[in-house]
């Protein structure tokens, strides 16, 4: 019981902190940091779901046992894809931030939304 709730509390807590940063902060770079924290929480949640207690990593070698005592490999493959997509989104978001700062002179979200065109 104690073992189970540790991981779930960590995942949900990380997601909540990331969402709070995305919703309430005014600086654009803080919002992007919140996005990165939220994504890390999601990755942890996906890998925790596929864990089996007492099992080992899904890699065969001359000394490991049968495939009956290995962890589920499907969530790990999905999380591997998701991590690389996360870094691509981050690079594009930061390039747009640099361009916004050149154009408006500020990174305050209230002021950028207030400017009329």
């Amino acid at each position: 019981m104690f073992h189970q709730s540790t991981y779930f509390v960590g995942c949900v807590g990380l997601m909540i902190v990331g969402l709070y940063t995305m919703l309430t902060k005014k600086n654009l770079i803080k919002v992007i940091i919140g996005l990165s924290l939220f994504e890390t929480g999601i990755y942890l949640l996906l890998v925790v779901v596929g864990y089996i207690q007492g099992a080992t990593a899904p890699i065969f070698s001359r000394t490991t046992g049968s495939p009956a005592e290995m962890v589920d490999p499907t969530p790990q493959a999905l999380v591997l894809t998701a991590i690389v997509i996360g870094v691509a989104v981050l690079a594009l978001a930061l390039s747009l931030t640099i361009r916004l700062h050149e154009h408006y002179g500020t990174l305050n979200l209230r002021k950028i939304r207030g400017l009329k065109w």
């Binding site: 899904p58 890699i59 065969f60 070698s61 495939p67 290995m70 490999p73 499907t74 790990q76 493959a77 591997l80 894809t81």
Partner: peptide, 19 residues
């Protein structure tokens, strides 16, 4: 994937053969 991965594809790392 765990039961068939090693015999059909020959890769020792099952996550690699899944990806």
């Amino acid at each position: 994937y765990l039961n068939q991965g090693m015999e059909k594809t020959g890769a020792a790392n099952v996550v690699t053969s899944v990806v």
